[in-house]
Design a protein around this nucleic acid. Structure first.
Lengths: 293, 293
DNA sequence: ATGGGTATCTGACATTGGTCAGGTAACGGT
DNA sequence: ACCGTTACCTGACCAATGTCAGATACCCAT
């Protein structure tokens, strides 16, 4: 409907403010102020170093210190010196702390489950939420190295295969394709990168090395919810840097005209089209880029 | 991507929590605590009665009272007795208050504008936001009577026409159709209802009366972002009640097989198919329902 | 006109959240 | 060994928020 975009954005904003407020309220039900509960949850989610906690929660050093001590006297948390820097401290949940944390998790999960169950098309709602989350969180999307056999990587790769299957008239069967060995895409031969948005993998790219100066780019994929945010360019820039660090001078890749965004990206970022260099049945475009300069 | 739905929901939740927090921070920039700013904004948005304010903001009576007095001594608000109940009070913005309110509005609008401008497909982002907002706000969707010539009504009707144009192979030209006179869809002859979600019209339905016992249902439409929430049933139930109140005993409507959801709805809610009762070129299904019982 | 109920205000407090200026211990380079 | 720096803790303090028990004025039904 052709309503004012700003009005629509703000209606969204009000709706989620309410939702967020309700979740906070439900957290209060465990007899602990919100700040304390947030610290407990952050620790539970793996933010163990105090400096990381401070940063993540945006808290003053003094305040966080007091909240931590509160949790310690409650018996939910223990702190100890950081093994590599005795000035810094790390916080850990005790058994009781873990139980409390799980109770908060259950509250969150319940809310999520119920909200999704109430909707007639949960998948559509989730797709919309993914889109919004990627858009709002675009500044905090990080590129990290991963093993292509990790669960997060596998999710990306499977989504990638599924998308190829949908886009190619012939479908796509990865076993017919030149599927690289995972070990070719990890150090010391190659690399595999994930774009992580708040713990969720939303894109990937692989560098398949051979030990020599020529390597191949494989498996560039961005989640539909995160397209247009410039992520593929970021991933490619980063993987090129990794390739240079491995003393690779020439990169190649193959792709398909059914993926016009990809073809356009390569054309616009210094790749030149070359002759077919393999007998993989799927690709119909082949590119090369010299990165030795 | 086939991630855990709960994880996806919670990633969304974290992303918007951050966004909401950032907006709150920006409100703080005007040298007024958040609670006070919220009260000012609520008044600006038409929540004038103190009881409504309390309810809307979820504040304790004492706290709200103090915040209001603060705004009064700042010269931004005046309160006076409610004209119909001198126990209650209504708050109004002074000229200075209106200016402050507009400053907060500008902050909100700026944020919205910038967030949208940063996205490559603002319309896609907005569609996702509409979907989420309708889903999260479904409990607060209200059915209200409106004039079909009001701007909010016109937005719905135009969206309805646009959708018919897209769905019918022949397109849709409202001037070729039996477009009811607006006055046939307001009291005392008929009625026109809007489904309002937080100030935005997301659905409509019309009752075209003739003064006699037979009337027609027209213009049933639900925004794509709000489909599946049971809104059309709510609108139909409500408009039937209005028809009964007008001593109408028989309702008729025409529709098109290109709108299968609508046809299914009528079949499932007590309508029986009848012969063509008009020469409108677009419809190919005709229904009738006796509501005198 | 009377009494029970309602809407808001007031004052007294308690809790929470946030800030700041030292203080202590450890680090890292010289 | 020393010194500037870093990470965290402590204590003091203040503003904001939340809670509660009357007080006041008004409403409405009888």
């Amino acid at each position: 409907m052709s309503n004012d975009p700003i009005a629509r954005y703000r209606r969204f904003s009000r709706a989620v403010t309410k939702e967020v407020g309700a979740l906070d309220q439900s957290f209060l039900g465990r007899g602990r102020p919100l700040g304390t509960a947030r610290v407990l949850n952050a620790i539970g989610h793996g933010k163990t170093e105090v400096s990381v906690l401070r940063d993540y929660l945006g808290l003053d050093s003094g305040l966080l210190s007091r909240l931590l001590r509160g949790l310690e006297t409650e018996g939910l948390v223990t702190t100890s010196a950081h093994p590599e820097d005795a000035r810094a401290r790390v916080a850990r949940l005790t058994e009781a702390g873990e139980a409390e944390f799980q109770a908060y998790e259950a509250l969150s999960n319940d809310r999520a489950t119920r909200a999704l169950a109430r909707h007639p098309h949960p998948e559509a709602l989730l797709a919309a939420m993914d889109l919004v989350a990627s858009a709002l969180g675009r500044d905090s999307i990080e590129i990290v190295e991963a093993d292509p056999r990790d669960p997060a990587s596998r999710l990306c790769l499977e989504a990638y295969y599924a998308e190829l299957a949908a886009r190619f008239d012939t479908g796509f069967d990865v076993s017919l394709s030149r599927d690289p060995e995972a070990t070719d895409m990890i150090l010391p031969r190659g690399s595999f990168l994930l774009a992580m948005s708040d713990g969720m993998a939303i894109g990937c790219v692989g560098l398949k090395g051979s030990g020599g100066p020529v390597a191949e780019i494989k498996r560039l994929w961005i989640s539909p919810s995160a397209r247009g945010l410039g992520l593929s360019k970021r991933l490619m820039t980063e993987i090129e840097a990794r390739a240079r660090a491995l003393e690779i001078t020439t990169l190649r890749l193959d792709t398909n005209s059914k993926l016009p965004e990809a073809v356009a990206l390569y054309r616009n970022t210094g790749w030149s089209e070359i002759d077919r260099f393999n007998d993989d049945p799927y690709p119909d475009h082949f590119f090369e880029k010299n990165i030795s300069s």
